[in-house]
Simulated assay, not measured.
Amino acid sequence: MRITKRFLTDLVYQVNGAAIEVHKALGPGLFESVYQKCMIQEFRLRGLHFQSEIRVPVNYKGHTLETALRCDFFIENILVVELKAVEKVLPVHEAQLITYMKLLNSPEGLLINFNTSHIFNEGQKTYVNELYRDLEDE
Rank of each mutant, 00 (worst) to 15 (best):
F7D: 08
Y13L: 14
N16D: 14
A18T: 13
A19I: 04
V22S: 09
A25M: 05
A25D: 10
A25K: 06
L26C: 05
P28Y: 06
F31D: 13
Q36M: 09
Q36P: 06
K37F: 03
C38M: 07
F43A: 02
F43V: 01
H49I: 14
Q51E: 06
Q51P: 13
S52F: 01
P57C: 04
N59H: 05
Y60W: 03
T64C: 12
A68T: 15
L69H: 05
L69A: 03
R70T: 00
R70Q: 07
D72T: 00
F73P: 00
I75W: 05
V80M: 04
K88D: 02
V89E: 00
L90F: 14
P91C: 15
V92T: 10
V92F: 04
E94L: 15
L97S: 06
I98M: 08
T99D: 10
M101H: 03
L103K: 07
G109L: 09
I112L: 11
F114C: 02
N115K: 12
N115C: 08
T116K: 14
H118G: 07
E122I: 10
G123D: 11
K125L: 06
K125M: 06
Y127I: 14
V128C: 11
V128P: 10
E130H: 14
Y132R: 04
Y132D: 06
R133K: 15
D134R: 15
D134N: 14
L135D: 07
L135Y: 15
D137H: 06
